[in-house]
Design a binder for these strands. Sequence first.
DNA 1: TCCTCTTTGTTAAAAAATAATCAAATATAT
DNA 2: ATATATTTGATTATTTTTTAACAAAGAGGA
Lengths: 210, 210
Amino acid sequence: MTNSQGISELVINRLPRYHRFLGELLSKGVQRISSRELSEKMGLTASQIRQDLNCFGGFGQQGYGYHIEQLRNEIGNILGLNKSNRAILIGAGNLGRAIASHMNFEGKGFRLIGIFDKKEALKGQIIKGLPIRHIDDLDEFCRENLPVCAILCIPQNDAYEICNALIHLGVKGFWNFSHYDLAVNHPEIAVENVHLGDSLMKLSYKIKND
Amino acid sequence: MTNSQGISELVINRLPRYHRFLGELLSKGVQRISSRELSEKMGLTASQIRQDLNCFGGFGQQGYGYHIEQLRNEIGNILGLNKSNRAILIGAGNLGRAIASHMNFEGKGFRLIGIFDKKEALKGQIIKGLPIRHIDDLDEFCRENLPVCAILCIPQNDAYEICNALIHLGVKGFWNFSHYDLAVNHPEIAVENVHLGDSLMKLSYKIKND
DNA sequence: TCCTCTTTGTTAAAAAATAATCAAATATAT
DNA sequence: ATATATTTGATTATTTTTTAACAAAGAGGA
């Protein structure tokens, strides 16, 4: 499966991992690396690394390899990590709060600007410096602050409706933790489903069949 | 890539999603479905559904389709969801607590039996009916209770050491939320890495390139 | 009961992804 | 300055995955 730029989804899936490994190397003071060395560290083939990177440009140099800092920056640019997309969190339950507190949005292309929940009781509580707002204020807040991304930590039943409303309010991307399988028709809307339950089931399979 | 049973990883990845969709249909009172109908709902081809299922057996019937409840049970059995693998959570920070509270382990093949953290201050606090124990008690607890699975919600730097210790204590599977890329050599150890940061970066790419 | 229509499981074809190969470019050592 | 070692980016081959096609089985209606 390929996206609008003709880049395979599988290639995109690997980019964050490259970024992560290059960051680790950098923090260890390593400055350059060959595709062969990196392939050994990451458990894939050198050929694949070179192919993946050459989808976006020739970042290496014959006889030398890749300059780690430069390559990492290139990958960061491809992923858009330098951006600061305004993001709002919908649902301040256990998971929502954990995502807000735990995730490092800056450096991954996002900035959290608002948190919403339908429970009146949570209103005003502060998380990561942001007050929880009531979901009724979502509309007004969006018109004023124009968030680009919404993080959905809400029950399955609420997801469809909220998602639709947010699309009309201009939200372009969804990080969806709800049990609902967000399948937006609009090709200009980006969705990243995180189904933790599916992941756990896969682990169950692997444990069972090892 | 295929696992020890010769089943492609990609097929396994799709099984939980089938299970989920069949569950939704069932809860709506639908009893039977054809691969064509299901393919339309799920946004893939009928051919793929039939191929996927036939990796494990012929669960359908010509001219009729699939009996939803029966098929869902079959998939559940394949995934091992009927099991009750003893699981422990390491790391009771924001994310760990959210996972413990939010996840429905029963029905996904697991049962949470212990929670550990290195912070003395958290000791004794109750989450989902389980007291947080100090990490120093991990060894003894494991010898007595023989957990099969560990959920790692710990910092990157601690992951490698803890993981190794747990393997020696008989843990067979890891649900890894740490930033560390758990790459266990032992083929009999199952690992499911959940890199939320990677997922967020992918969303950044998609938003940027839509 | 018989006929038609549906739908599976399987086989074959097509497409996509991965891995191997290699000429050209560059680093590094002598 | 030259020769040798590396290592990339691109091309080609291989493998894997997905899609299409179709015969055989069964459902459902006349």
